[in-house]
Computed example of a mutant assay.
Amino acid sequence: MRAVDAARAAKHRAFLAGRGLAERREAFSDAMLARRACRLGPGFDAERHREADGQFALDYFLNRVDDTLTDAGLDVPRRIFVAWTGENALTPNRLAALESIRAMNAGLDVVLVTPENLNEWVVDTHPLHAAYEHLSAVHRSDYLLHHHGGGWSDLKRASHDWSPSFDAINADPSAWLLGYPEARSRDVAYLASPLGREMAARHRTIAANCAFIARPLTPFTAAWLEEVEARLDYYARSLARHPAVDPFGDGGGYPLPWSALQGLVFQPLQLRFAEHTELDERLRPAQADHR
Rank of each mutant, 00 (worst) to 15 (best):
P42E: 07
A274D: 02
Y234M: 07
H139Q: 11
L283A: 03
H129K: 11
E116N: 08
R184M: 01
K156H: 08
R291Y: 12
L21F: 04
T218W: 00
W224E: 06
E182Y: 07
N93P: 00
E198M: 13
H148Q: 14
A3P: 06
H139P: 06
G18M: 06
D71I: 11
R204A: 11
A211P: 04
A9V: 04
K11L: 07
P216Q: 00
G86I: 08
D53W: 09
P194G: 09
F248W: 14
R241L: 11
A34Q: 00
L74I: 10
T277P: 02
E47H: 01
E227K: 13
W152N: 09
S165H: 02
V122R: 07
A46M: 03
N117G: 09
W152M: 07
E281L: 09
T221G: 06
R19I: 03
E229N: 11
P92Q: 11
A57L: 04
Y190N: 10
Q287F: 03
R102Q: 14
L177G: 03
R78Y: 08
G43S: 10
Q287C: 00
L256W: 05
Q55C: 06
F220W: 10
F61R: 08
L144Y: 01
T205P: 00
E116L: 11
P92D: 12
W176M: 05
A52D: 15
H148R: 14
P255V: 05
R13P: 02
A183R: 15
R39F: 01
P216V: 00
H12P: 00
W84N: 13
N117T: 11
L40S: 12
D187H: 03
L225Y: 10
R215S: 10
G196K: 15
P92R: 08
D233E: 15
D289P: 04
H160D: 02
H147A: 14
W121D: 11
R36D: 03
E120C: 13
K11T: 04
H49R: 06
G149M: 02
M32F: 03
H134P: 13
A214D: 09
A6I: 14
D172E: 10
R13M: 05
D53Y: 05
H276D: 06
Q55V: 01
